[in-house]
Design a protein around this nucleic acid. Sequence first.
DNA 1: CATGACTGTGTATACTGTACGCAGATTCGT
DNA 2: ACGAATCTGCGTACAGTATACACAGTCATG
Lengths: 246, 246
Amino acid sequence: MTKQGVDPATRTLELLWERIAAPTRGPKPTLTLDEIVGAAIEIADRDGLGDLSMRRVAEALGFTTMSLYRYLPGKEELVELMRDKAVGRPPAHRRDASWRAALQRWARADLEVHLKHPWLLEVEIRRPPFGPNHLAWLDAGLAAIEPLSLDPLVMLNTVLAVDSYVRGAARIRVGTSAEQRRSRATRQELARLYAGIFEQIVTDERYPALAKIVTAGVFDPAEKPIDEFEFGLDRVLDGVAAFVEP
Amino acid sequence: MTKQGVDPATRTLELLWERIAAPTRGPKPTLTLDEIVGAAIEIADRDGLGDLSMRRVAEALGFTTMSLYRYLPGKEELVELMRDKAVGRPPAHRRDASWRAALQRWARADLEVHLKHPWLLEVEIRRPPFGPNHLAWLDAGLAAIEPLSLDPLVMLNTVLAVDSYVRGAARIRVGTSAEQRRSRATRQELARLYAGIFEQIVTDERYPALAKIVTAGVFDPAEKPIDEFEFGLDRVLDGVAAFVEP
DNA sequence: CATGACTGTGTATACTGTACGCAGATTCGT
DNA sequence: ACGAATCTGCGTACAGTATACACAGTCATG
């Protein structure tokens, strides 16, 4: 598993699709790529991507750091494999559901994956989704709106738009829930803290429009009758609906 | 600038709003916080967040690494300051524009910021936007839809939804354009490469819905008549329109 | 003018990813 | 059956990271 002359992206592709021929000579490997990736995901889920190190992964498996490099060219490729394994398979498609219900289900599942693996959003996207699971998600999203029989290019961009929204919204949700864990405060306590900060900082002169929102008590932890994700998702789906049913 | 007992988030807040009283005794500082943050942004813009190190920032300024710690408690706070400085001020509000035109302008400017500073999307969000510039953006977004006189909570969530979409979409755009720079290939060349990979991997049995898209030539670099960002943005804005004008 | 406070620096520590070489194990060709 | 080839896992080494701490020089204030 040397780095050779191939570029990292192509190497990752080969690993994702297990294109490396298993050697016949020499001792059989004790570990598997999947075990390594799984251990790495556990660490990242628990302590974040920042605390993920080759040493920690190796220790979790009871091996030395360098042994991992027999399975992977480097950390970059490990993270890419983690990404595809972590997203897993998309929810099964229900043929009887409406396009809207199906796309909504898909979007919610997408959010859930990101809440389960918050570090997913910290990884820079370098290429289109070429991993088996990522492709399955894309396929599922397309299948959801297939009954609409849209132009293929429009189909793809519709799914991409929904996905963009979900990941953008997930980024906010993930951040706040991570901060909750870190600070060991409840949602209410944090909301109260934030409300206090807003009230201190946001003045009518500096931020007139925002000030109205703040004084209206939007950040007041007492009232919280809206699920931000669902609100936005409904708007996006409305937008799709308006496009296909003018 | 010791770390003291205060938590990092609060310390960041104090730095963002320059709440630290300048000391009277002792030599005057040679550097300013703003210079440090500016140098750091330049490095991150050029080489990415991964190549940003305290040493490189210090070297760029002609100082030693440790001197930076007289101005900042640590790297985490530096990145947070970089975030707020990088987003800058939002575009000025045009009072005569329709809410849709204003919100569209705002969203496009939001995208532009992220294309200019791609690393913005790699930073984990820990708290609501408390930086002066971030608050100004939020204020501008709210101002854009103020004529609609919506419920304050709905207003906030509408802006958040648009912002979520923009950042999600930006993440894709940023990734691909960064890969372009890295691989020193043109957009067309990369598109051709990707199309080839899709054709190899995406089979009708594994990914039936996606296969139809691929064979329809959607990834064909020859035709590219859609701006993905604008398409999705139009859907989102349509969704908002459907909500406010049923 | 001495005191106390502050700035910038040099050193030190505990990490990080990973290149390289080696010992032992396994399989192939003869 | 036996040598050669080849592969695994390990140990060492190196350059890079953030940052804690002590110290020398500098400046404003009592």
